[in-house]
Design a binder for these strands. Structure first.
Lengths: 256, 256
DNA sequence: CAGTACGCTGTACGGCGTACAACGTACTGA
DNA sequence: TCAGTACGTTGTACGCCGTACAGCGTACTG
Protein backbone atom coordinates (compact mmCIF):
# COMPACT_ATOMS: atom_id res chain seq x y z
CA UNK A 1 0.00 0.00 0.00
CA UNK A 2 1.12 3.56 -0.58
CA UNK A 3 -1.52 5.67 1.14
CA UNK A 4 -1.43 9.26 0.10
CA UNK A 5 -4.97 8.96 1.24
CA UNK A 6 -6.53 8.84 4.61
CA UNK A 7 -7.46 5.93 6.77
CA UNK A 8 -9.13 2.81 5.44
CA UNK A 9 -8.78 1.02 8.77
CA UNK A 10 -11.13 0.52 11.67
CA UNK A 11 -13.46 3.57 11.75
CA UNK A 12 -14.05 3.39 15.50
CA UNK A 13 -10.34 3.37 16.23
CA UNK A 14 -9.75 6.29 13.87
CA UNK A 15 -12.47 8.41 15.46
CA UNK A 16 -11.22 7.54 18.95
CA UNK A 17 -7.75 8.67 17.93
CA UNK A 18 -9.02 11.92 16.48
CA UNK A 19 -10.75 12.77 19.75
CA UNK A 20 -7.82 11.55 21.82
CA UNK A 21 -10.03 9.05 23.55
CA UNK A 22 -8.31 8.35 26.92
CA UNK A 23 -9.52 4.75 26.77
CA UNK A 24 -7.03 4.24 23.96
CA UNK A 25 -4.05 5.01 26.22
CA UNK A 26 -2.99 1.94 28.17
CA UNK A 27 -1.60 1.76 31.71
CA UNK A 28 0.85 -1.11 31.55
CA UNK A 29 4.27 -1.22 29.99
CA UNK A 30 7.17 1.20 29.72
CA UNK A 31 6.70 4.92 29.64
CA UNK A 32 6.03 6.27 26.14
CA UNK A 33 8.80 8.33 24.68
CA UNK A 34 6.42 10.65 22.80
CA UNK A 35 2.76 11.45 22.55
CA UNK A 36 0.35 11.53 19.65
CA UNK A 37 0.44 15.30 19.32
CA UNK A 38 4.20 15.28 18.92
CA UNK A 39 3.95 12.75 16.13
CA UNK A 40 1.26 14.72 14.34
CA UNK A 41 3.14 17.98 14.79
CA UNK A 42 6.31 16.47 13.34
CA UNK A 43 4.41 15.18 10.33
CA UNK A 44 2.72 18.53 9.75
CA UNK A 45 6.02 20.37 10.02
CA UNK A 46 7.57 18.01 7.51
CA UNK A 47 4.67 18.41 5.09
CA UNK A 48 4.79 22.18 5.42
CA UNK A 49 8.51 22.26 4.75
CA UNK A 50 8.88 19.69 2.00
CA UNK A 51 5.45 18.68 0.78
CA UNK A 52 3.24 15.70 1.37
CA UNK A 53 5.48 13.32 -0.52
CA UNK A 54 8.22 13.94 2.05
CA UNK A 55 5.96 12.62 4.78
CA UNK A 56 7.08 9.02 5.11
CA UNK A 57 7.02 7.01 8.29
CA UNK A 58 10.81 6.84 8.22
CA UNK A 59 11.31 10.55 7.86
CA UNK A 60 8.76 11.46 10.51
CA UNK A 61 10.46 9.01 12.86
CA UNK A 62 13.85 10.55 12.03
CA UNK A 63 12.55 13.96 13.05
CA UNK A 64 11.47 12.55 16.38
CA UNK A 65 14.68 10.64 17.00
CA UNK A 66 12.90 7.33 17.06
CA UNK A 67 12.81 4.15 15.02
CA UNK A 68 10.25 4.09 12.21
CA UNK A 69 8.28 1.24 13.70
CA UNK A 70 7.76 3.10 16.96
CA UNK A 71 5.26 5.33 15.24
CA UNK A 72 2.94 2.38 14.92
CA UNK A 73 2.34 2.41 18.64
CA UNK A 74 0.87 5.88 18.30
CA UNK A 75 -0.95 5.47 15.02
CA UNK A 76 -2.34 2.39 13.28
CA UNK A 77 -0.87 3.39 9.94
CA UNK A 78 0.00 6.20 7.64
CA UNK A 79 -3.58 6.79 6.57
CA UNK A 80 -4.66 7.60 10.10
CA UNK A 81 -1.67 9.91 10.48
CA UNK A 82 -2.91 11.87 7.48
CA UNK A 83 -6.36 12.10 9.04
CA UNK A 84 -4.83 13.45 12.23
CA UNK A 85 -2.72 15.97 10.34
CA UNK A 86 -5.77 17.29 8.55
CA UNK A 87 -7.79 17.58 11.70
CA UNK A 88 -4.91 19.34 13.45
CA UNK A 89 -4.56 22.10 10.87
CA UNK A 90 -8.32 22.51 10.71
CA UNK A 91 -8.50 22.91 14.46
CA UNK A 92 -5.83 25.62 14.24
CA UNK A 93 -7.60 27.65 11.53
CA UNK A 94 -8.13 31.26 12.55
CA UNK A 95 -11.84 31.99 12.50
CA UNK A 96 -12.76 35.55 11.72
CA UNK A 97 -15.45 37.20 13.80
CA UNK A 98 -17.93 38.34 11.19
CA UNK A 99 -20.95 38.70 13.41
CA UNK A 100 -23.21 41.46 12.18
CA UNK A 101 -22.05 41.39 8.60
CA UNK A 102 -24.39 40.28 5.80
CA UNK A 103 -24.28 36.60 4.95
CA UNK A 104 -22.51 37.18 1.64
CA UNK A 105 -19.54 38.69 3.41
CA UNK A 106 -19.54 36.02 6.06
CA UNK A 107 -19.49 33.31 3.40
CA UNK A 108 -16.75 35.10 1.50
CA UNK A 109 -14.76 35.16 4.73
CA UNK A 110 -15.18 31.40 5.04
CA UNK A 111 -13.72 31.02 1.56
CA UNK A 112 -10.83 33.30 2.48
CA UNK A 113 -10.12 31.34 5.64
CA UNK A 114 -9.92 28.16 3.66
CA UNK A 115 -7.73 29.75 1.03
CA UNK A 116 -5.40 30.88 3.80
CA UNK A 117 -5.36 27.37 5.25
CA UNK A 118 -4.23 25.96 1.93
CA UNK A 119 -1.69 28.75 1.50
CA UNK A 120 -0.12 27.77 4.83
CA UNK A 121 -0.49 24.02 4.26
CA UNK A 122 -0.72 23.32 0.52
CA UNK A 123 -0.57 19.58 1.15
CA UNK A 124 -3.91 19.82 3.00
CA UNK A 125 -5.65 20.40 -0.34
CA UNK A 126 -4.09 17.31 -1.88
CA UNK A 127 -4.79 14.67 0.76
CA UNK A 128 -7.53 12.48 -0.57
CA UNK A 129 -9.96 11.83 2.25
CA UNK A 130 -11.71 8.55 1.67
CA UNK A 131 -13.97 9.10 4.65
CA UNK A 132 -14.57 12.43 6.32
CA UNK A 133 -12.15 12.50 9.27
CA UNK A 134 -14.70 13.78 11.78
CA UNK A 135 -12.33 14.97 14.48
CA UNK A 136 -12.72 17.94 16.78
CA UNK A 137 -10.99 20.23 14.30
CA UNK A 138 -13.28 19.28 11.45
CA UNK A 139 -16.41 19.61 13.57
CA UNK A 140 -15.43 22.99 14.99
CA UNK A 141 -14.69 24.22 11.51
CA UNK A 142 -18.00 22.85 10.18
CA UNK A 143 -19.91 24.58 12.98
CA UNK A 144 -18.13 27.87 12.32
CA UNK A 145 -18.70 27.72 8.59
CA UNK A 146 -22.34 26.79 8.87
CA UNK A 147 -22.83 29.84 11.08
CA UNK A 148 -21.86 32.02 8.13
CA UNK A 149 -25.18 31.12 6.54
CA UNK A 150 -27.24 32.02 9.61
CA UNK A 151 -30.27 34.06 8.68
CA UNK A 152 -29.76 33.83 4.92
CA UNK A 153 -33.15 32.22 4.51
CA UNK A 154 -32.12 28.84 3.16
CA UNK A 155 -33.10 25.54 4.70
CA UNK A 156 -30.66 23.34 6.59
CA UNK A 157 -30.03 20.98 3.72
CA UNK A 158 -29.51 23.82 1.25
CA UNK A 159 -27.06 25.50 3.59
CA UNK A 160 -25.07 22.30 3.76
CA UNK A 161 -25.22 22.01 -0.01
CA UNK A 162 -23.91 25.54 -0.48
CA UNK A 163 -21.10 25.04 1.99
CA UNK A 164 -20.11 21.77 0.34
CA UNK A 165 -20.03 23.41 -3.08
CA UNK A 166 -17.98 26.30 -1.77
CA UNK A 167 -15.44 24.11 0.01
CA UNK A 168 -15.20 21.75 -2.93
CA UNK A 169 -14.40 24.58 -5.26
CA UNK A 170 -11.91 26.31 -3.00
CA UNK A 171 -10.10 23.07 -2.32
CA UNK A 172 -9.94 22.24 -6.01
CA UNK A 173 -8.37 25.62 -6.77
CA UNK A 174 -5.90 25.17 -3.94
CA UNK A 175 -4.99 21.76 -5.22
CA UNK A 176 -4.30 23.12 -8.69
CA UNK A 177 -2.20 25.89 -7.22
CA UNK A 178 -0.26 23.41 -5.12
CA UNK A 179 0.33 21.20 -8.15
CA UNK A 180 1.62 24.14 -10.16
CA UNK A 181 3.97 25.20 -7.37
CA UNK A 182 5.18 21.63 -7.03
CA UNK A 183 5.86 21.45 -10.74
CA UNK A 184 8.12 24.47 -10.54
CA UNK A 185 9.87 23.20 -7.44
CA UNK A 186 10.47 19.67 -8.72
CA UNK A 187 11.45 20.41 -12.28
CA UNK A 188 13.11 23.78 -11.78
CA UNK A 189 11.24 24.95 -14.88
CA UNK A 190 8.84 27.82 -14.36
CA UNK A 191 5.84 28.59 -16.51
CA UNK A 192 7.76 30.75 -18.95
CA UNK A 193 10.50 28.17 -19.31
CA UNK A 194 7.99 25.43 -19.89
CA UNK A 195 6.32 27.37 -22.67
CA UNK A 196 9.63 28.29 -24.22
CA UNK A 197 10.45 24.59 -24.47
CA UNK A 198 7.03 23.23 -25.39
CA UNK A 199 5.76 26.12 -27.49
CA UNK A 200 7.72 25.58 -30.70
CA UNK A 201 6.91 21.87 -30.82
CA UNK A 202 3.27 22.61 -30.10
CA UNK A 203 3.17 25.27 -32.80
CA UNK A 204 4.36 22.69 -35.33
CA UNK A 205 1.26 20.60 -34.68
CA UNK A 206 -1.43 23.05 -33.71
CA UNK A 207 -3.39 24.21 -36.71
CA UNK A 208 -5.25 27.47 -35.95
CA UNK A 209 -7.67 26.70 -38.74
CA UNK A 210 -8.72 23.46 -37.10
CA UNK A 211 -8.94 24.96 -33.61
CA UNK A 212 -9.89 28.63 -34.04
CA UNK A 213 -11.36 29.19 -30.59
CA UNK A 214 -8.71 27.21 -28.75
CA UNK A 215 -5.87 29.17 -30.31
CA UNK A 216 -7.53 32.57 -30.07
CA UNK A 217 -8.98 32.25 -26.59
CA UNK A 218 -6.05 30.30 -25.24
CA UNK A 219 -3.74 33.10 -26.35
CA UNK A 220 -6.03 35.78 -24.97
CA UNK A 221 -6.34 34.10 -21.61
CA UNK A 222 -2.62 33.46 -21.43
CA UNK A 223 -1.88 37.09 -22.20
CA UNK A 224 -4.44 38.32 -19.66
CA UNK A 225 -3.01 36.28 -16.80
CA UNK A 226 0.61 36.36 -17.84
CA UNK A 227 0.61 32.57 -17.85
CA UNK A 228 -1.36 29.61 -19.14
CA UNK A 229 -3.18 29.19 -15.88
CA UNK A 230 -3.41 31.65 -13.01
CA UNK A 231 -4.75 29.81 -9.95
CA UNK A 232 -5.37 32.99 -7.97
CA UNK A 233 -7.48 34.50 -10.69
CA UNK A 234 -9.31 31.24 -11.29
CA UNK A 235 -10.23 31.10 -7.64
CA UNK A 236 -11.43 34.67 -7.45
CA UNK A 237 -13.49 34.39 -10.60
CA UNK A 238 -15.12 31.08 -9.81
CA UNK A 239 -15.86 32.09 -6.26
CA UNK A 240 -17.63 35.23 -7.41
CA UNK A 241 -19.82 33.19 -9.76
CA UNK A 242 -20.63 30.68 -7.08
CA UNK A 243 -21.60 33.41 -4.61
CA UNK A 244 -23.83 34.95 -7.27
CA UNK A 245 -25.41 31.55 -7.67
CA UNK A 246 -26.03 31.31 -3.93
CA UNK A 247 -27.58 34.76 -3.98
CA UNK A 248 -29.93 33.73 -6.77
CA UNK A 249 -31.06 30.77 -4.69
CA UNK A 250 -31.58 32.92 -1.62
CA UNK A 251 -33.60 35.35 -3.66
CA UNK A 252 -35.75 32.56 -5.10
CA UNK A 253 -36.45 31.23 -1.59
CA UNK A 254 -37.25 34.74 -0.38
CA UNK A 255 -39.81 35.22 -3.09
CA UNK A 256 -41.69 32.00 -2.53
CA UNK B 1 10.08 9.20 -7.27
CA UNK B 2 6.55 7.88 -7.16
CA UNK B 3 4.72 9.87 -9.82
CA UNK B 4 0.98 9.65 -9.49
CA UNK B 5 1.36 12.92 -11.27
CA UNK B 6 2.09 13.76 -14.82
CA UNK B 7 5.35 14.48 -16.53
CA UNK B 8 8.03 16.65 -15.00
CA UNK B 9 10.50 15.82 -17.79
CA UNK B 10 11.47 17.58 -20.97
CA UNK B 11 8.42 19.56 -22.12
CA UNK B 12 9.35 19.41 -25.80
CA UNK B 13 9.68 15.64 -25.70
CA UNK B 14 6.37 15.29 -23.89
CA UNK B 15 4.52 17.43 -26.41
CA UNK B 16 6.13 15.58 -29.30
CA UNK B 17 4.98 12.30 -27.81
CA UNK B 18 1.44 13.55 -27.32
CA UNK B 19 1.21 14.52 -30.97
CA UNK B 20 2.96 11.32 -32.10
CA UNK B 21 5.70 13.35 -33.75
CA UNK B 22 7.11 11.02 -36.44
CA UNK B 23 10.56 12.50 -35.89
CA UNK B 24 10.61 10.67 -32.57
CA UNK B 25 10.44 7.25 -34.25
CA UNK B 26 13.90 6.04 -35.30
CA UNK B 27 14.77 3.97 -38.34
CA UNK B 28 17.64 1.81 -37.17
CA UNK B 29 17.53 -1.18 -34.87
CA UNK B 30 15.22 -4.13 -34.45
CA UNK B 31 11.54 -3.93 -35.18
CA UNK B 32 9.53 -2.65 -32.24
CA UNK B 33 7.34 -5.23 -30.64
CA UNK B 34 4.62 -2.69 -29.79
CA UNK B 35 3.64 0.84 -30.49
CA UNK B 36 2.88 3.78 -28.25
CA UNK B 37 -0.86 3.45 -28.65
CA UNK B 38 -0.78 -0.14 -27.45
CA UNK B 39 1.12 0.89 -24.33
CA UNK B 40 -1.29 3.71 -23.60
CA UNK B 41 -4.31 1.51 -24.26
CA UNK B 42 -3.01 -1.16 -21.89
CA UNK B 43 -2.43 1.42 -19.17
CA UNK B 44 -5.91 2.89 -19.64
CA UNK B 45 -7.51 -0.54 -19.53
CA UNK B 46 -5.65 -1.34 -16.34
CA UNK B 47 -6.67 1.93 -14.72
CA UNK B 48 -10.28 1.42 -15.75
CA UNK B 49 -10.33 -2.08 -14.33
CA UNK B 50 -8.38 -1.65 -11.11
CA UNK B 51 -7.81 2.03 -10.49
CA UNK B 52 -4.87 4.32 -10.95
CA UNK B 53 -2.84 2.71 -8.20
CA UNK B 54 -2.78 -0.53 -10.17
CA UNK B 55 -1.02 1.25 -13.04
CA UNK B 56 2.61 0.39 -12.42
CA UNK B 57 5.22 -0.04 -15.08
CA UNK B 58 5.52 -3.71 -14.14
CA UNK B 59 1.83 -4.43 -14.42
CA UNK B 60 1.41 -2.55 -17.68
CA UNK B 61 4.35 -4.48 -19.09
CA UNK B 62 2.80 -7.74 -17.86
CA UNK B 63 -0.38 -6.99 -19.76
CA UNK B 64 1.64 -6.47 -22.91
CA UNK B 65 3.77 -9.59 -22.45
CA UNK B 66 6.94 -7.60 -22.26
CA UNK B 67 9.65 -6.83 -19.72
CA UNK B 68 9.03 -3.75 -17.58
CA UNK B 69 12.04 -1.89 -18.87
CA UNK B 70 10.86 -2.21 -22.46
CA UNK B 71 8.23 0.41 -21.79
CA UNK B 72 10.96 2.97 -21.40
CA UNK B 73 11.70 2.78 -25.12
CA UNK B 74 8.16 4.02 -25.77
CA UNK B 75 7.82 6.50 -22.95
CA UNK B 76 10.40 8.48 -20.97
CA UNK B 77 8.77 7.64 -17.65
CA UNK B 78 5.58 7.02 -15.82
CA UNK B 79 4.65 10.69 -15.69
CA UNK B 80 4.54 10.95 -19.44
CA UNK B 81 2.48 7.77 -19.61
CA UNK B 82 -0.12 9.41 -17.38
CA UNK B 83 -0.16 12.45 -19.68
CA UNK B 84 -0.75 10.18 -22.64
CA UNK B 85 -3.51 8.27 -20.88
CA UNK B 86 -5.29 11.49 -20.04
CA UNK B 87 -5.01 12.81 -23.57
CA UNK B 88 -6.25 9.52 -24.97
CA UNK B 89 -9.47 9.44 -22.96
CA UNK B 90 -10.07 13.11 -23.70
CA UNK B 91 -9.69 12.50 -27.40
CA UNK B 92 -12.26 9.71 -27.16
CA UNK B 93 -14.89 11.79 -25.35
CA UNK B 94 -18.23 11.77 -27.15
CA UNK B 95 -19.12 15.33 -28.03
CA UNK B 96 -22.81 16.05 -28.20
CA UNK B 97 -24.10 18.11 -31.08
CA UNK B 98 -25.88 20.96 -29.34
CA UNK B 99 -25.94 23.43 -32.19
CA UNK B 100 -29.00 25.64 -32.07
CA UNK B 101 -29.60 25.21 -28.35
CA UNK B 102 -29.23 28.16 -25.96
CA UNK B 103 -25.82 28.56 -24.40
CA UNK B 104 -27.00 27.45 -20.96
CA UNK B 105 -27.97 24.04 -22.31
CA UNK B 106 -24.79 23.76 -24.33
CA UNK B 107 -22.70 24.50 -21.25
CA UNK B 108 -24.71 22.04 -19.20
CA UNK B 109 -24.01 19.46 -21.89
CA UNK B 110 -20.29 20.14 -21.51
CA UNK B 111 -20.58 19.44 -17.81
CA UNK B 112 -22.48 16.24 -18.50
CA UNK B 113 -19.86 15.08 -20.99
CA UNK B 114 -17.14 15.58 -18.41
CA UNK B 115 -19.15 13.82 -15.75
CA UNK B 116 -19.57 10.90 -18.13
CA UNK B 117 -15.84 10.89 -18.81
CA UNK B 118 -15.11 10.57 -15.11
CA UNK B 119 -17.81 7.94 -14.70
CA UNK B 120 -16.08 5.82 -17.36
CA UNK B 121 -12.56 6.65 -16.14
CA UNK B 122 -12.66 7.68 -12.48
CA UNK B 123 -8.86 7.73 -12.33
CA UNK B 124 -8.87 10.60 -14.86
CA UNK B 125 -10.20 12.91 -12.16
CA UNK B 126 -7.46 11.97 -9.75
CA UNK B 127 -4.35 12.35 -11.91
CA UNK B 128 -2.61 15.47 -10.79
CA UNK B 129 -1.51 17.34 -13.90
CA UNK B 130 1.50 19.45 -13.07
CA UNK B 131 1.48 21.02 -16.52
CA UNK B 132 -1.45 20.97 -18.90
CA UNK B 133 -0.79 18.02 -21.21
CA UNK B 134 -1.62 19.87 -24.40
CA UNK B 135 -2.11 16.93 -26.70
CA UNK B 136 -4.54 16.58 -29.58
CA UNK B 137 -7.22 15.20 -27.28
CA UNK B 138 -7.00 18.10 -24.85
CA UNK B 139 -7.02 20.68 -27.61
CA UNK B 140 -9.97 19.15 -29.42
CA UNK B 141 -11.88 19.02 -26.17
CA UNK B 142 -10.98 22.62 -25.35
CA UNK B 143 -12.17 23.77 -28.76
CA UNK B 144 -15.42 21.87 -28.40
CA UNK B 145 -16.11 23.19 -24.93
CA UNK B 146 -15.31 26.78 -25.80
CA UNK B 147 -17.84 26.53 -28.61
CA UNK B 148 -20.56 25.98 -26.02
CA UNK B 149 -20.16 29.62 -25.02
CA UNK B 150 -20.50 30.93 -28.59
CA UNK B 151 -22.83 33.88 -28.74
CA UNK B 152 -23.37 34.15 -25.01
CA UNK B 153 -22.05 37.70 -25.03
CA UNK B 154 -18.99 37.26 -22.85
CA UNK B 155 -15.48 38.22 -23.86
CA UNK B 156 -12.84 35.66 -24.74
CA UNK B 157 -11.10 35.83 -21.38
CA UNK B 158 -14.36 35.55 -19.47
CA UNK B 159 -15.39 32.55 -21.49
CA UNK B 160 -12.13 30.87 -20.62
CA UNK B 161 -12.66 31.79 -16.97
CA UNK B 162 -16.14 30.28 -16.94
CA UNK B 163 -15.00 27.10 -18.61
CA UNK B 164 -12.11 26.77 -16.18
CA UNK B 165 -14.42 27.21 -13.20
CA UNK B 166 -16.87 24.69 -14.61
CA UNK B 167 -14.24 22.05 -15.33
CA UNK B 168 -12.54 22.61 -12.00
CA UNK B 169 -15.77 22.04 -10.15
CA UNK B 170 -16.86 19.00 -12.12
CA UNK B 171 -13.46 17.41 -11.74
CA UNK B 172 -13.43 18.06 -8.00
CA UNK B 173 -16.81 16.38 -7.62
CA UNK B 174 -15.66 13.45 -9.71
CA UNK B 175 -12.54 13.12 -7.61
CA UNK B 176 -14.57 13.00 -4.42
CA UNK B 177 -16.88 10.42 -5.94
CA UNK B 178 -13.92 8.34 -7.04
CA UNK B 179 -12.39 8.55 -3.58
CA UNK B 180 -15.63 7.43 -1.98
CA UNK B 181 -15.94 4.49 -4.37
CA UNK B 182 -12.33 3.56 -3.73
CA UNK B 183 -12.92 3.63 0.01
CA UNK B 184 -15.73 1.12 -0.32
CA UNK B 185 -13.73 -1.09 -2.66
CA UNK B 186 -10.53 -1.09 -0.60
CA UNK B 187 -11.99 -1.42 2.85
CA UNK B 188 -15.08 -3.46 2.06
CA UNK B 189 -17.00 -1.11 4.36
CA UNK B 190 -19.79 0.87 2.78
CA UNK B 191 -21.13 4.14 4.06
CA UNK B 192 -23.71 2.58 6.33
CA UNK B 193 -21.14 0.20 7.79
CA UNK B 194 -18.71 3.01 8.37
CA UNK B 195 -21.27 5.02 10.29
CA UNK B 196 -22.36 2.00 12.27
CA UNK B 197 -18.77 1.58 13.42
CA UNK B 198 -17.79 5.23 13.85
CA UNK B 199 -21.12 6.64 15.00
CA UNK B 200 -21.21 5.40 18.59
CA UNK B 201 -17.65 6.53 19.27
CA UNK B 202 -18.37 9.88 17.67
CA UNK B 203 -21.55 10.27 19.71
CA UNK B 204 -19.52 9.82 22.88
CA UNK B 205 -17.48 12.90 22.07
CA UNK B 206 -19.76 15.12 20.07
CA UNK B 207 -21.63 17.53 22.30
CA UNK B 208 -24.73 18.90 20.54
CA UNK B 209 -24.68 21.89 22.86
CA UNK B 210 -21.23 22.88 21.71
CA UNK B 211 -21.95 22.29 18.03
CA UNK B 212 -25.65 22.95 17.52
CA UNK B 213 -25.53 23.67 13.79
CA UNK B 214 -23.09 20.89 12.99
CA UNK B 215 -25.19 18.25 14.70
CA UNK B 216 -28.55 19.51 13.43
CA UNK B 217 -27.54 20.26 9.87
CA UNK B 218 -25.22 17.30 9.57
CA UNK B 219 -28.06 15.02 10.57
CA UNK B 220 -30.50 16.74 8.23
CA UNK B 221 -28.14 16.53 5.28
CA UNK B 222 -27.30 12.93 6.02
CA UNK B 223 -30.97 12.03 6.21
CA UNK B 224 -31.76 13.90 3.00
CA UNK B 225 -29.10 12.13 0.96
CA UNK B 226 -29.21 8.80 2.71
CA UNK B 227 -25.53 9.16 3.50
CA UNK B 228 -23.02 11.61 4.88
CA UNK B 229 -22.01 12.79 1.45
CA UNK B 230 -23.79 12.20 -1.83
CA UNK B 231 -21.42 13.08 -4.66
CA UNK B 232 -24.11 13.01 -7.33
CA UNK B 233 -26.28 15.46 -5.47
CA UNK B 234 -23.31 17.68 -4.62
CA UNK B 235 -22.44 17.85 -8.30
CA UNK B 236 -25.95 18.66 -9.43
CA UNK B 237 -26.46 21.32 -6.80
CA UNK B 238 -23.11 23.07 -7.24
CA UNK B 239 -23.38 22.98 -11.00
CA UNK B 240 -26.78 24.67 -10.90
CA UNK B 241 -25.40 27.45 -8.70
CA UNK B 242 -22.40 27.92 -10.96
CA UNK B 243 -24.58 28.14 -14.06
CA UNK B 244 -26.76 30.70 -12.30
CA UNK B 245 -23.60 32.65 -11.58
CA UNK B 246 -22.61 32.51 -15.24
CA UNK B 247 -26.06 33.73 -16.20
CA UNK B 248 -25.75 36.69 -13.85
CA UNK B 249 -22.47 37.62 -15.48
CA UNK B 250 -23.95 37.32 -18.95
CA UNK B 251 -26.85 39.51 -17.93
CA UNK B 252 -24.52 42.11 -16.46
CA UNK B 253 -22.52 42.21 -19.69
CA UNK B 254 -25.69 42.44 -21.74
CA UNK B 255 -26.87 45.46 -19.78
CA UNK B 256 -23.66 47.42 -20.08
C1' DC C 1 29.83 -7.11 -45.21
C1' DA C 2 31.39 -4.25 -41.31
C1' DG C 3 29.70 -0.76 -38.36
C1' DT C 4 26.37 1.11 -35.70
C1' DA C 5 22.09 2.61 -33.84
C1' DC C 6 18.69 0.88 -31.44
C1' DG C 7 15.06 -2.47 -29.00
C1' DC C 8 14.79 -5.66 -25.43
C1' DT C 9 16.00 -7.75 -21.06
C1' DG C 10 17.99 -9.16 -16.27
C1' DT C 11 19.90 -7.37 -12.52
C1' DA C 12 20.26 -4.10 -9.12
C1' DC C 13 19.59 0.17 -6.17
C1' DG C 14 17.29 2.97 -3.11
C1' DG C 15 12.92 4.05 -1.55
C1' DC C 16 8.26 2.90 0.43
C1' DG C 17 4.63 0.79 4.18
C1' DT C 18 4.56 -2.37 7.57
C1' DA C 19 4.58 -7.60 9.55
C1' DC C 20 6.99 -9.97 12.97
C1' DA C 21 9.76 -11.51 16.69
C1' DA C 22 13.01 -10.26 20.26
C1' DC C 23 13.92 -7.60 24.18
C1' DG C 24 13.29 -4.70 28.07
C1' DT C 25 10.24 -2.02 31.21
C1' DA C 26 6.70 -0.92 34.41
C1' DC C 27 2.57 -2.06 36.39
C1' DT C 28 -0.71 -5.90 38.55
C1' DG C 29 -2.28 -9.37 41.65
C1' DA C 30 -0.91 -13.04 44.85
C1' DT D 1 7.80 -9.09 47.64
C1' DC D 2 7.89 -11.14 43.38
C1' DA D 3 6.24 -13.55 39.49
C1' DG D 4 3.34 -12.62 35.49
C1' DT D 5 1.94 -9.88 31.98
C1' DA D 6 0.90 -6.07 29.07
C1' DC D 7 3.07 -3.02 26.50
C1' DG D 8 6.79 0.27 24.10
C1' DT D 9 10.74 0.04 21.24
C1' DT D 10 13.66 -1.81 17.85
C1' DG D 11 16.17 -4.50 13.91
C1' DT D 12 15.31 -7.23 10.35
C1' DA D 13 12.86 -8.55 6.48
C1' DC D 14 9.27 -8.85 2.70
C1' DG D 15 7.11 -7.36 -1.22
C1' DC D 16 6.17 -3.56 -3.67
C1' DC D 17 7.63 0.73 -6.49
C1' DG D 18 10.35 3.64 -10.46
C1' DT D 19 14.15 3.27 -13.10
C1' DA D 20 19.67 3.28 -14.02
C1' DC D 21 22.73 0.44 -16.36
C1' DA D 22 25.11 -2.88 -19.05
C1' DG D 23 24.84 -6.84 -22.14
C1' DC D 24 22.99 -8.87 -26.14
C1' DG D 25 20.95 -9.41 -30.53
C1' DT D 26 18.77 -7.23 -34.65
C1' DA D 27 18.17 -4.58 -38.72
C1' DC D 28 19.50 -0.83 -41.26
C1' DT D 29 23.58 2.13 -43.43
C1' DG D 30 27.64 3.01 -46.07
Amino acid sequence: MSPDRSSAGDPARTVALLWRDPAAVPRRGPRRALDLDAVVAAAVALADAEGLEAVTMRRVADRLGVAPMSLYTYVPGKGELLDLMLDAVRAAMPRADTAGLPWQERVAAVAAENLALYADHPWAATVSTLRPPLGPGAIARYEHELAAFDGCGLGDVEVDDCLTALLTFVRACARDAAAAAEAVRDSGVDDAGWWAAAGPVLARHLDPGAFPRATRIGAAAGAAHGSAHDPVHAHRFGLARLLDGFAALVEARGRS
